[in-house]
Design a protein around this nucleic acid. Structure first.
Lengths: 226, 226
DNA sequence: CGCGGCTTTGATGTTCATCAAGTAAAGTGG
DNA sequence: CCACTTTACTTGATGAACATCAAAGCCGCG
């Protein structure tokens, strides 16, 4: 494990605003934590004391609704500031976070980040921008999903995986059918039915979790107008 | 019209972080603008150059979806920082804003606010907190609404008006039935049907836009479990 | 090897959007 | 100020979309 941020390939430009001294402090204080698939990084209601940065892997951010029901708010990918949703407004996490894949998270004491906001205006500005962008993105995604019918939602989420996360038209789904449903507000059965429909219409090839988008134009149309 | 912020009763504690000089500059640069019911404060896609603070009145923040369809994202009340959703992440408004009631808005050049973030760490911190809280609230509200059935949504929005906005169980709706629908994702006809249902069940008294909640316990139950 | 969770398909039921049609209210121009 | 137009409100009937229920095969895991 590296013990400095200098060599980190996945360095967000947020940290470019730090001066040498601040950066050294950060580098010293940070911890790198690895999670296996399925492991929980933080739980709804827990006290927040760390600022988390996803270096590698994939996480899901979710909320527990009923005894066996979850709502997935979003998926975090490398370079995302995980938990930024809660960090500055509450002292407790609003959402739970767990690993969808083997993931590596950098953890920085929250106090240190808060001190940097106080003393470094550029850092504060960039953080404001990042946070704002992230919130925009999440809210927009939610609003978008709710406008669509089930076929549109399914197409939308497949395109999200393809374009935003894997940058490929062929990928392995990191989530179960059930989790897809939790992500786009629909029942597992209907996720399956619509995926089969897409397969029958030659829009997709499906092999378990393996997805290959055969007709991306059609999928985009369905996502847009469905 | 007052020409200083000193006497403003509706002063957010955000501005308490400013020093004398900064406050004087702010006081000088700010403009107070009055809007009549129905007037548009800003339109989706327009360039953002001002930081807006709602002093008095009620605004709606919304998105145009189709030729005659809107989605209302939220309602801003006095002391809210209007348009904060877009200010730091984009140069153009993501949403339109219009007045539901006679409203008074303070407008501060955005450049000035950005300068204050750079030079005043406490101001930056408070702004981060405010923004974070606002985003949490909006996202949470949306997620909540989507979980509920139509009766639940209707109950929820009535309780929001009652508790968050008018602080009374008797109030005049600032919006049409159609707008209620746009706020909680349902058709006008169903808003009306369910309001009538609540009236028949003696949960509400309704006279046009006048609402009186007769059985708040029932309404809370419907909102929670519906 | 057996148990629980995931996946799949089919049948059924409920909720809600849509269509239709009429009244009331609120703006608009002569 | 009144005729006219448009927008808001209301109720009923119908159908489509989606949730729910049921049953069976599959897979991974202890």
């Amino acid at each position: 494990m590296s013990n400095s941020c200098d060599i980190c390939f996945y360095r967000s430009f947020l940290f470019d605003n730090l001066n040498k001294k601040e950066f050294a402090l950060l580098s010293l204080a940070r911890k790198e934590i690895n999670f296996k698939k399925g492991e929980v990084i933080s739980r709804e209601g827990e006290k927040i004391s760390e600022f988390l940065y996803l270096k590698e892997g994939l996480l899901k951010v979710y909320k527990t609704i009923g005894p066996r029901k979850e709502q997935i708010i979003g998926i975090a990918k490398p370079m995302d500031f995980v938990g930024l949703l809660s960090v500055f407004s509450k002292t407790k996490y609003l959402y739970s976070i767990s690993a969808l894949e083997v993931s590596s998270v950098c953890s920085i004491p929250l106090d240190m980040v808060k001190k940097m906001v106080l003393s470094n205006g550029e850092f504060a500005t960039t953080l404001l921008e990042k946070m704002s962008q992230m919130n925009d993105h999440i809210l927009n995604t939610r609003l978008n999903i709710n406008l669509k019918n089930l076929r549109g939602r399914t197409a939308f989420i497949l395109l999200m995986f393809s374009k935003e996360i894997y940058k490929s038209e062929k990928f392995e789904l990191p989530v179960s059918r059930k989790e897809i449903g939790e992500l786009i507000d629909m029942r597992t059965e209907n996720v399956i039915r619509i995926l089969s429909e897409f397969r029958n219409d030659s829009i997709l090839k499906i092999e378990g979790k393996g997805i290959e988008i055969m007709d991306i134009k059609r999928l985009e149309q369905i996502s847009e107008f469905g």
